[in-house]
Simulated assay, not measured.
Amino acid sequence: MERDNGSTQRLVVDPKHPNPSVIREAGAVLRQGGLVAFPTETVYGLGANALDPRAVTGIFRAKGRPGDNPLIVHIEGPEALANYVERIPPAVSKLAERFWPGPLTLVIENRNKFPAVVTGGLETVAVRVPGHPVALALIRAAGVPVAAPSANISGRPSPTTAGHVMDDLAGRIDLVLDGGPSGLGVESTVLDLTGRNPVILRPGGVTRRELEAVLGPVELDPSVDGQAPGGKPRSPGMKYTHYAPRAPLLLFEGCGKESMAARILAEAGRLAGEGRKVGILACEETAQIYAREGYPVVVAGRRSDPESVAAALYESLRRFDRMEVDVILAEGISEDGVGLAVMNRLRRAAGGNIIAGPS
């Protein structure tokens, strides 16, 4: 479906009690092969009928997404899995009882129900049950599983508001359901259940500790720390530079907040001496240190509360675009809990530009 610039419709919905007529309209768009952006509890997703290869191809075209990057299929409940997968691992029922609906994606074997454009040509498929009333209502109204990556231009910071979606995709998609800001602010955790041991391919809203409380030991894929995976990526967020603002980002990690602030100020002074406009991504605890020196600062939550950093991260990165800085110096945080997901996103946004502190 061709779209002229500005043809994307934006409809406001109550995030807790979405208007049934609006949801029915959006569901019809999906059934007819169109693209609908919608809120989830993590970020905004860009949905298409997961059983329609032509519709799913439209997601890749709208986003400029690499074709070997698999998509996550959103379903209305765990009972729907039997319709689409060959073998449901025993761990699924335990995880579904604890975390679904919610920010956990499971990679399991595909039963050839989903086209290769959804799975990235793999013999596995990534599925989840979203925990947002609008997302669940849309899936039910559509009557089909919904393939949905984040609703942004590929590589950009993920969208946490409908405004972010419009900034990136207006004129490229059919409809945006505006359900207000998403809550968690980072994507779902992706857990691979197809091997001998469960492996986190992408950290997110469900922490490693929470998973291990249900399953026992859970491994981390090396790509979580920024290493490139061999072969095709098994999950979104593994292979490519993601979540990146327009200006290059330099990530500082591995030291205490006072030492980190000193190192950031030293690098900021060097870059400013070269005539470059420096922006600093900081936590509340250290923001004034940089502001006193005259640097533009964007505050992304509190170091003592990684959930607040996660919730603010993508909006903070997009603010630097509006500030038109030449380079961004970003504070790292502890990898405890959701901090692991935050650091994964910052490492991807930095594209390897990382300054590690003393071990």
Rank of each mutant, 00 (worst) to 15 (best):
I354G: 00
K257E: 11
E258K: 10
D305R: 09
E307P: 13
L251V: 13
E293K: 11
R347F: 01
E285I: 10
D326C: 04
A349D: 00
V325A: 08
R319N: 07
F320I: 03
R292G: 12
R302P: 08
E284N: 12
A291G: 07
L249T: 11
C283K: 06
V327G: 04
A272C: 13
Y290G: 06
Y240N: 06
A261G: 12
A311H: 11
R276I: 14
E253V: 10
T286C: 12
Y295A: 12
K257W: 15
I354W: 00
P245H: 01
L317P: 14
V298Y: 12
R348E: 08
V342D: 09
L346F: 10
V309Q: 10
G256S: 12
R270M: 11
L249M: 09
R319E: 14
A349V: 00
V299F: 06
G254I: 08
I289Y: 11
P245K: 02
E284V: 05
I328H: 06
A341S: 04
T286M: 14
T241H: 09
H242M: 00
A350R: 07
A356F: 14
I289A: 10
Y290M: 04
V338T: 14
P306K: 08
R322E: 15
E284W: 12
S308D: 01
A311M: 02
A282Q: 10
R347D: 02
E285K: 10
A261D: 04
G351P: 03
Y290S: 02
S259D: 15
G339V: 02
C283V: 10
D305T: 05
A310Q: 01
I328M: 03
P296M: 13
A268W: 14
P296A: 12
E315A: 11
A247K: 06
G275V: 09
E274D: 14
K257L: 15
A310E: 03
D321G: 03
V309M: 05
E293D: 10
A268C: 04
Y314Q: 07
E274K: 13
I280A: 03
G301M: 04
V325S: 06
